[in-house]
């Protein structure tokens, strides 16, 4: 299975990761906790490697081989990063709202600002920008492939 090999290669075969393996003391005899700490230290690198591995494949749209596919993969990555940022932002806000422990609550005006700013202004701005990007791209691709 090429994927599995790639994954192992990305984690182990990569010289940087190999260093981290050694730093973390993997491969030697160590306690369970040392092992955990070791994995935690190489975790982010492993995750990034995993992400890259997750993209390849003969039918993968994230492993583009043509012009259209490349432009669409770009569109995906832009939206992916945007979505991730928005999701983390909303979760952080919700977490803050639920854990807030200071004595007096924020004024009602702040709440309305949140609804108006987050729900209306922010959404409209982001969605308009994305729509312009997406529709322009669609026009270009359809012109390029001679359709529509």
């Amino acid at each position: 299975m090429p994927q599995k090999e790639l994954f192992v290669a990305a984690c182990v075969g990569n010289p940087n990761n190999a260093d981290k393996f050694r730093e973390a003391g993997l491969g030697k005899t160590e306690t369970f906790w040392q092992r955990c700490i070791g994995w935690a230290r190489i975790g982010p690198a492993g995750l990034a490697a995993l992400m890259l591995v997750a993209c390849d494949g003969p039918q993968s749209s994230l492993d583009p081989a043509g012009y259209d596919a490349r432009r669409l993969a770009d569109l995906f990555w832009v939206m992916f990063v945007g979505a991730l940022v928005i999701w983390v932002g909303v979760m952080a806000l919700a977490f803050y709202a639920a854990r807030r422990r200071d004595s007096d609550p924020p004024p009602e005006g702040a709440a309305n600002l949140l609804i108006l700013g987050g729900g209306v202004i922010f959404s409209i701005a982001v969605l308009t920008a994305l729509l312009v990007y997406g529709l322009l791209l669609m026009g270009q691709l359809r012109a390029y492939s001679g359709a529509g």
Partner: peptide, 23 residues
């Protein structure tokens, strides 16, 4: 994409309610 706007308004209203209250 426009339908995301009223949806966001509803979710932010709930977050605001939580923020102003004591959960």
């Amino acid at each position: 994409t426009a339908v995301a706007i009223p949806t966001a308004v509803q979710l932010f209203a709930f977050i605001a309610t939580v923020m102003l209250g004591r959960v």
